[in-house]
């Protein structure tokens, strides 16, 4: 190899997303080895995402001061799709499929970087590969006192995260401290 050879493909930002995607893939593979039931893996991935989401919410709020306060689900969905997902996944998302009086919506993530190198085998249809993203959204929203349920569904072209709003959490004082 000649010394002058320009390192090919060494683009720090791009590689860091590759590192993330490949590491995540290896983690999922390891989990599938540990648990026989893909649904257990979904739960674990959700937990991983949840814990990351709680911290990401702090990071997001500290860096993006211009984001307005959300008062309804539509604003929340817009902030998620236009600010949060581009900031951490590097791709944009679209919001659609509003249901049950603006309480449920879907986030469509196109070119999901996590699935760039992945082909989930036929026999693992019950595995939600991108469940970590769903968990992270749930964790992030819980950190700002919004309780939701989320699921990640993989379609051949993109990833759909279904979000269902449950309630606004209230700070409850511990009993006997009023």
């Amino acid at each position: 190899m000649s010394k002058q050879q320009k390192p090919v493909g060494v683009d720090a930002k791009k590689m860091s997303s590759e590192l993330f995607a490949l590491t995540y893939g290896s983690l999922v593979a390891e989990m599938l080895k540990d648990y026989e039931d893909p649904r257990q893996v979904n739960l674990q991935l959700d937990k991983v995402g949840f814990n990351m989401g709680i911290r990401l919410a702090d990071d997001f709020l500290s860096k993006q001061a211009g984001v307005p306060k959300c008062t309804d689900c539509r604003q929340m969905a817009e902030t998620l799709s236009k600010n949060v997902i581009p900031a951490y996944l590097g791709v944009s998302a679209t919001v659609n499929n509003w249901e049950s009086g603006d309480r449920e919506f879907s986030l469509q993530i196109e070119n999901n970087p996590l699935t760039e190198f992945v082909e989930v085998p036929q026999d693992l249809t019950s595995l939600h590969y991108s469940q970590m993203i769903a968990g992270a959204i749930r964790g992030g929203l819980e950190a700002v006192h919004i309780k939701v349920t989320t699921t990640a569904i993989e379609t051949p072209t993109n990833t759909v995260i279904k979000v269902k709003f449950i309630e606004v959490l209230k700070d409850n004082l511990p009993a006997g401290e009023d």
Partner: peptide, 22 residues
Amino acid sequence: ESIGLRTGFLLAERLCRDLPRI
């Protein structure tokens, strides 16, 4: 370590795909 092993293997494969043989 085994998660890392798999990741490292894949990363190295991707990275030296276009490089001359080392």
